[in-house]
Amino acid sequence: MSLRKHGMTRRQLLSQSALFGASFVIGAGYVAGKAEAANWAIEVEHLKPETMATLIQMARDIYPHDQVGDQFYALAVKGYDSAEAAPGIEEGIAALNEAARGIGYAAYTLIGWERDRVDLLRSLEDTAFFQQIRGGLVTGLYNQKAVWPIFGYEGESFSQGGYIDRGFDDINWL
């Protein structure tokens, strides 16, 4: 489960894709970072690209960390792109979009304010789908070693001899 850089150039991808929602550019079989600087994309095999893009937005709305890039959320939900999981996810995202339509938006990702998306998620909080996504994120997002430094967490220290000489007692503001 690793982020693959797509084979196409960014320009090629953009030219082939439709702007979807606020966050992502979708190519045939790809979900990619929208920003020009974003250099990541994931290939989806079993899920529709729009579904993956919605899932990534939903993941961010559940556990929003503004300093954490979309690629980490994408990686956290990438596992659902399997033959086994995809039908349930498509169904869940379809229901989410249906709910979005109920409040006047064409799709979940087209709801502009996080507050409104979160209100929608709150109303679906008790569904098995929501709980599946939320529960999976607890490890899917926070157990990614690459996100730890963003939170300052240093992980294992045995290989460096522990913290005995590396600041276990260096607090200086007390």
Partner: peptide, 20 residues
């Protein structure tokens, strides 16, 4: 607790900005 366990145990089931 490390970050992974903190995420799991600080307020199990919680989500949204109050948690994050």
């Amino acid at each position: 607790l490390g970050l992974p366990f903190m995420a799991a145990f600080l307020d199990p089931g919680a989500w949204g900005r109050e948690f994050t």
